[in-house]
Write a protein that binds this DNA or RNA. Structure first.
Ligand SMILES: [Mn+2]
Ligand SMILES: [Mn+2]
Ligand SMILES: [Zn+2]
Ligand SMILES: [Zn+2]
Lengths: 136, 136
DNA sequence: TTCTTGACTTAGACGGAGTCCAATGTACGA
DNA sequence: TCGTACATTGGACTCCGTCTAAGTCAAGAA
């Protein structure tokens, strides 16, 4: 994750304790935390960090493409540090767990030109739903 | 849409002016209105209808499978009367317009067993993103 | 037709998620 | 070390949605 901090610095961004902590908290595989979960974990390391700063920092990381926003339910958005390898999500309808998955083929290829209504289609997001081993 | 009202009655539900108006407002193709948009249009026909009733009625229609909820952005959910024919959505990143699309093949088929992590996968939702003719 | 009653509707309070702001603090180049 | 532009803070605010208590009414019974 210090890659990320280095990239932030290269963009002229100040390295603050808050940004460092948000980057640390978001490290790992299959990590899909809400902003408030990030805040709670950040507070454990830096008690005075504010909710607004967590939102700001997450927003910055999203805008430079280091983190992706994932909306799997009608609830809070989730933040995903796995931004370098394109992937889709498998969500448990029971407990809400989210796993990264890599379907084969390009999902865009399944949409014929006749079904594009003149749009310039640039991306496809797929959410697979089902029950995880614990919930089934 | 009186099909829908008939089905509601068969389930023992009272036919009220409010439910009738919500069903009427939601009729058509490529209709993906937010609850507040439904409310605004319903008010034009029945000025005293409340927001709570619109939410209640939409929720009932969703629970009997006559309407589907669609979350295309991080904003308000949209309500889609096209519940009988399975389909996916194409969303304009500029203006937010939503079109129904029918990709070929089963989107579930693209997810190999090795990528299912022991889940019982039952559905896949695909959101295609791009720019509509007006926005590009 | 009128009556009765439980289901429906209503307004407004409430809650979660996210944004915005003015005041305060601080990273870092000079 | 200093100055200052940028970052952080807490709290107010907005948007979307849910809940509740009180009033209303659809529809079966008589
Ligand atoms: Mn992911
Ligand atoms: Mn649709
Ligand atoms: Zn589960
Ligand atoms: Zn558009």
């Amino acid at each position: 994750m210090s890659d990320l901090l280095e990239r932030l610095r290269e963009r002229g961004w100040r390295l603050t304790a808050q940004r460092r902590v948000v980057a640390e908290v978001l490290d790992g595989d299959h990590v899909h935390l809400t902003a408030d979960e990030v805040h709670a974990r950040a507070i454990a390391r830096l008690p005075e960090i504010s909710r607004a700063t967590v939102y700001n920092t997450l927003g910055e990381m999203v805008s430079i493409g280091e983190v992706v926003e994932v909306a799997t339910d009608g609830r809070a958005k989730r933040y995903d540090p796995n931004a370098h390898r394109p992937h889709q999500h498998l969500v448990c309808s029971g407990c809400g767990t989210v796993r990264d998955v890599h379907p084969h083929g390009d999902p865009l290829a399944a949409l014929p030109a006749a079904e594009r209504f003149g749009f310039t289609v640039s991306a496809a997001e797929v959410t697979y739903r089902g029950l995880c081993p614990d919930c089934s």
